[in-house]
């Protein structure tokens, strides 16, 4: 009887050991398939594809062989059925392009704060005028990076199919010519299991 009790107790402890919440570090680039919602893997796939496509495109290779053109990132319009932080996607693309050494960027999201600082340096009287950053010396962007993210979702009682299409375009601001455009498609499908907890 005692032995039986011990076995039951040990079995119970083994089962319950798995119940305690566990925290661990994971690979940030590991495939994430928790659900069909837009996730980290989608973001990484999109950014990698865009940057790879852009950097091997012959006219771009030629254009960036002698100089590093200045680009500004407009917004990616979210046309999906999810609340996606598209700025996070463009941030990743921007970092990758910047680190490739082919492009330089101006950041339009901080213009207000930069202006505030320049005004302070010029007008407050606290900054040595010889050391102050001069107004009107910034370099204007030559290209604009912008795009769209759209999705088609279909669902019935047991399956869900999500198709994402991410389009990125590089426009020459002077001429209005589209220099490059890239696209990444992602399809995710969920099939519900028959049995579950």
């Amino acid at each position: 009887m005692v032995r039986l009790l011990t076995i039951v107790l040990v079995a119970a402890m083994t089962v319950l050991a798995g119940c305690a919440a566990k925290v661990d570090y994971g690979d940030a680039t590991a495939r994430e398939t928790v659900n069909t919602d837009f996730g980290s893997t989608d973001l990484q796939m999109i950014a990698a594809k865009m940057v790879d496509d852009m950097l091997v495109f012959p006219p771009i290779v030629q254009m960036t062989s002698q100089r590093r053109p200045v680009v500004f990132v407009d917004r990616i319009k979210n046309k999906t059925t999810e609340h996606i932080d598209t700025e996070s996607i463009t941030d990743t693309i921007q970092s990758k392009l910047l680190n490739s050494g082919k492009f330089r960027f101006v950041d339009m999201t901080v213009v207000d704060r930069v202006k505030e600082q320049l005004d302070y340096q010029a007008d407050s009287g606290l900054v040595d005028p010889t050391q102050a950053v001069l107004m009107g010396k910034q370099i204007g962007a030559e290209f604009m990076l912008y795009g769209n993210m759209s999705s088609i979702v279909k669902r019935d009682s047991s399956t869900k199919d999500v198709y994402y299409k991410f389009t990125l375009k590089l426009m020459n601001l002077q001429t209005g010519i589209l220099e490059w455009s890239g696209e990444k498609e992602i399809r995710k499908t969920r099939n519900n299991t028959f049995l579950g907890l």
Binding site: N35, R155, S158, K160, R190, N192, T193, F194, L195, G196, L197
Partner: peptide, 10 residues
Amino acid sequence: QDAAATVQAS
């Protein structure tokens, strides 16, 4: 609910 299995223990 959408993702739930057709037959669920709970």
